[in-house]
Design a protein around this nucleic acid. Sequence first.
DNA 1: CGTATTTGACCCGCGC
DNA 2: GCGCGGGTCAAATACG
Length: 307
Amino acid sequence: MEFIRLLNTSLDLNLKPLRFLDETPEMKHEVESSLKLGASSYVKQEKGALIEELNRVSAENKKLTELLTVMCEDYNELQNRLKEYTNKYPESDSISRKRTRESVINNINEAINNGSSVSSSSDEDSCKKPREEEDTKGKTWRTFVRTEASDASLIVKDGYHWRKYGQKVTRDNPSPRAYFKCSYAPSCPVKKKVQRSIEDKTVVVATYEGKHNHPQPPKLETSSTPNGSSTPGNVPCSTSLSSSRPTAMLNLTSHDESTTRSTKSRDKDQLRHSLLEHMASTLTRDPNFKAAVAAAISLQLNTRTQN
DNA sequence: CGTATTTGACCCGCGC
DNA sequence: GCGCGGGTCAAATACG
């Protein structure tokens, strides 16, 4: 599948700690004392190193920008192809209760290709963008959510509060099915069943029954579109960086089909800008990263004073 | 200690 | 009536 190719987010970047990205008081002190000791040659040397560093960061920035552009283009191409496909094979209105194996596979594939989520991380709050499929009655509907195969929690974050009241292994699917009730309002009759797809273990199928008799709870940490509120201007993109494994995630699902070319390019720029901004701010906020930078600088200063 | 989750038991509808 | 399978209950347990 082509979207797998898109998932390869290995940037092959030079991830050597950036210098002087965010000076801590200790670092400042060390640099100042070194400057006091050092001669003007040291300052020149340092200036050269800084310029070199700046060039390197600019090159990385350029590389990231190019990658992002390629990803956006690929996404648009995929979306166009999906549109063509759905126009070619419109889904029949009479969906029988018991689906054929082929139609189930098609729906799952469609859900994935539709951009349910593109995630390279196991982060629980990562891009879980459901695709909904309403029943002909309008009382039950299905949602496909892409998650990590290793994630056995069967939690689908849709903005509502759910209480799990049962779990069962059904005959047709070895994965357990979890039963939830809406716990936000005691009188709310809505229930949902969540089960991994038998065809694709990374896809979770949530079946909702009933209609909420209350408004959607205020979004705090849970949200059906977890990325929507995290970035300025609701740009559908988020990044996360942990000390052990830096990850980058993109949720490119909220494109309006009728958007003009200019809006698309503006969105691209916005997306690019916010992604870079977010990555930078995440890096500067990360205490481990700060510590690594401080260690690298002090190491370099020590070796220079020894030489 | 209150709340959420787990899990075995139980209930109920359906087909034979 | 019986067995099977899906759905629900509720006591036990875990967790914050």
